[in-house]
Design a protein around this nucleic acid. Sequence first.
DNA 1: CTATTTTGTTAGTGTGCACTAACACAAAGG
DNA 2: CCTTTGTGTTAGTGCACACTAACAAAATAG
Lengths: 198, 198
Amino acid sequence: MPRSDRSAERRAQHLPVIAEVFAELGYRRTTTAELARRCGVQETTLYRLWNGKKAMFLAAIDHVFSASMAIWQTQAVAGDGTSSAEKVLAYEAEHLGEFGLYRILFAAIGESDDDDIRAAVSTSYHRFHRWIERQIIDHRRRRPEDAAVEIDPALAAWAAVGVGTIINIARDLDLSSGDERARLLSEIGGLLLQGKTP
Amino acid sequence: MPRSDRSAERRAQHLPVIAEVFAELGYRRTTTAELARRCGVQETTLYRLWNGKKAMFLAAIDHVFSASMAIWQTQAVAGDGTSSAEKVLAYEAEHLGEFGLYRILFAAIGESDDDDIRAAVSTSYHRFHRWIERQIIDHRRRRPEDAAVEIDPALAAWAAVGVGTIINIARDLDLSSGDERARLLSEIGGLLLQGKTP
DNA sequence: CTATTTTGTTAGTGTGCACTAACACAAAGG
DNA sequence: CCTTTGTGTTAGTGCACACTAACAAAATAG
């Protein structure tokens, strides 16, 4: 009968661009016209792939979160002496915020009185936090010499998210030098990982 | 000759309300009609006090920042045994984010490609950071027993801002219990203050 | 009082934007 | 081939919103 449905592929193809635009402009300032222009298609094409602008935004949140986690996971697995957490820390020091995760989450927070958006950003943060907490626990298990731990891993994970957030803000606004941000990430990050001062 | 100019007082009178609305809705979703409604005046009245919506937003940023700092300062001065920093920490654990400082800064970050807004939020963050850094230095000077310090006060101050940020996000989105947020503030906050684990 | 200026109210205007309808073309299955 | 369905293009609609013009009323200085 008819042609087969390629809409799933089309969505996957456009999503990185859409996420990029939302990360760049936020939700409100992103227009469907701009999204179409950057994707190189007509607005109607996008409207056939998603129900509306909000659906595109929700998809973008999910995409940028999944992409970030996937990258970290690939960093975390390779196994030499250093722990997964240390490798992710080192990686982030280089590529921090590359996928626009923070910017999109910020945009979403500003729209959080919409229940769907609130739910999306809430679950993203929860998965984010849980993943980091796991890394911390894992790190401490592998390095028993750091075992004289004072900081609850759950708290340390939230603090790590907070430090990551302010580092991204600082970079976006040029609040501090790249060197200071790198030290912030490694020193405070290391402290939270180990649970005590070095 | 004519009546004296009361516009400065009128501005001061409306600013808290305007800041509240911007903190609640963000920049884009705040309409001038809503601002006027909440202030109990007509739109034209507001337009006579400020040049436009952006000017109202800039004034709101400045107001919410000054108001927060003023509150903290009053908390910091009273002098019993505890240090200023500890008192501010304790106060924030109770009244966290009451003045919408974080929400307004978030809204401003989303508009940071506008040079004026970018400048306003940038200087706000710098003053914010510098103030906290001072508190940390002061705390450590008053408590020489904590002097075996490992963490640079500048880094600790940025980390404190980050932790404060994530706590506000967590509260807004119900990401964690109030108890967990209080522990996050006091334990990590205390750690950053002292520069080493207790 | 009078002159001058702030304050209040009404009624717009132009614009940007999310979203849609209608139509032409392309592609694949039978 | 033909039929059915996906893809592209054009043009447009309705609405929300930032901002303004014009005029009425109230208040203060001389």
